[in-house]
Design a protein around this nucleic acid. Structure first.
Length: 132
DNA sequence: GTTCTCACA
DNA sequence: TGTGAGAA
């Protein structure tokens, strides 16, 4: 349960997500319009994305690269959601060895550095171990 | 400085 | 999808 919470905890603004997914803010917002993702908002309307959202975006990107249209992707994502909801016993994760705070801080730092050095691919690799 | 919405090429 | 305007 703690894991579920960690994954759906809104952590990053769209800028970070852009670095993470290598998508433009335009695309991210557009996909949201198409119902592909549901980021939460701050009181000032800013979008906040969770690990789940980022993973979703990464998945979407893969499909786009493979030539799928948004309608098809939307359908697939719906199935994914239903599946997750019906599978409360997700196998997943090794026990976190670091605290939520550490994780958040570490990630944020890495992401910021990634943005500066344009090494998003490396970061994506790091991230993949959190929601595999 | 960053993100938001909306409009238009 | 990209870009620019104007506001928060």
């Amino acid at each position: 349960m703690a894991d579920q919470f960690r994954r759906s905890n809104p952590l990053f603004p769209i800028g970070i997500v852009q670095d993470l997914t290598q998508l433009t803010g335009r695309q991210i917002r557009y996909y949201e319009e198409q119902g592909l993702i549901s980021p939460s908002r701050t009181e000032s309307k800013r979008r906040l994305y969770s690990f789940n959202d980022v993973e979703r975006l990464l998945t979407i990107k893969d499909f786009i690269d493979q030539g799928f249209n948004l309608a098809a992707i939307r359908h697939m994502l719906d199935n994914t959601d239903a599946k997750d909801a019906e599978s409360p016993k997700a196998p997943v994760d090794e026990a976190p060895k670091i605290s939520e705070q550490e994780l958040h801080k570490l990630l944020k730092t890495q992401l910021q550095e990634a943005g500066r050095f344009n090494k998003t691919s490396l970061i994506q690799g790091e991230l993949s171990r959190f929601y595999r």
